[in-house]
Design a protein around this nucleic acid. Structure first.
Lengths: 118, 118
DNA sequence: CAAACCTTGACACACCCGTGGTAACCTTGT
DNA sequence: ACAAGGTTACCACGGGTGTGTCAAGGTTTG
C-alpha cells in the first residue's frame, strides 16, 4: 500500500462509515477517493479527515448527504445560489416591513430579474 | 371574500399548484397563507407571487421543495450555514493547491473550530 | 336549507435516499 | 495458486417526498 493511503475497508474502519457507504458518498460527489492503477480506491489523510468531519456534520445537524450535495451545488452555481437566496430574501419581507429595507430591494430586484427571464 | 385574498382553489388556479400541494408547501414551511376567522386559508398577492416564483425556481433548476427548505434552514441558522460552508471550502482545497489560499485558511480554520467542539 | 367550498386526516402510489447484502469477476500478498 | 480483499452491478427494504383522492365535518352563499 502507498505510504499513507488506505484501501476502502481500512478507511471504513477508521472513519466509521461502511465500505458500502464510502462508495455511495463518492457517487454523491462528496468525497472522491483516488484510484490505484488497478482501480482500487485509495483514501489519503485528506479524504479520511473529510469523511470524519462529514459524518460529524450530518450527525450534529441531522441532515442528509443530499442536503450537503445540494449545498455544494449552490456553492458551485452562482445562478442557483442567487435565485434561491433571492426567493428566501423575499420571504423575509412581509408587506408590513416594506420601507425599512430599501437596500435589500435593490439586490432583490436584481435577482428577481434573474428569475423573470424564464 | 377579502378585498384581494384568494381561497385555496382560486389560488391554485392562478398559481398552477394543486390545492393539495398548496397545503403541502405550507406544511414544508415555505409559503404560509393567512387564515380567515373560520380557518380558511387566504392567499394575498404576496403569497401568490411567492408561489409562482417558487414554482419557477423548482422547475428551472430541477430541485425539490426539501432543497429549498434546507436552504431556508441554512439561511436561518448561522451555525449550520457556517459548518456546511466550512466543509465545502475544505473540499476546494486539494493538497496540491495549498499555499495559494492563505486568506482562505483563516476563515476555514475559524470554522473548523466550530466543527471541532463536538 | 342545499350546493359549493373549506378543513384535517388518512390511504395509496411512484420515486429517491440511505443501507445492507450478494454475485461475478479482477488484484494483491504469502 | 489460494485466500483475502477490491470492483461493479444488482435486489431489497424502510423511510421521506410529491401527488391524487376520498371521507367526515364545519362555513359561506344563493
Amino acid at each position: 500500500m502507498g505510504v499513507d493511503a488506505l484501501t476502502i475497508n481500512e478507511a471504513a474502519r477508521t472513519t466509521g462509515w461502511s465500505p458500502r457507504m464510502l462508495r455511495y458518498v463518492e457517487q454523491a460527489g462528496l468525497v472522491t477517493a483516488t484510484r490505484s492503477p488497478s482501480g482500487y480506491r485509495l483514501y489519503g489523510p485528506e479524504q479520511l479527515q473529510r469523511l470524519r468531519t462529514l459524518k460529524e456534520l450530518l450527525r450534529r445537524f441531522d441532515i442528509g448527504l443530499s442536503d450537503v450535495a445540494f449545498a455544494a451545488r449552490m456553492a458551485e452555481s452562482d445562478e442557483l445560489r442567487d435565485a434561491v437566496q433571492a426567493w428566501l430574501v423575499a420571504e423575509a419581507r412581509r408587506p408590513e416591513d416594506v420601507r425599512a429595507d430599501d437596500w435589500l430591494r435593490f439586490e432583490q430586484e436584481k435577482h428577481e430579474r434573474l428569475l423573470a427571464v424564464a
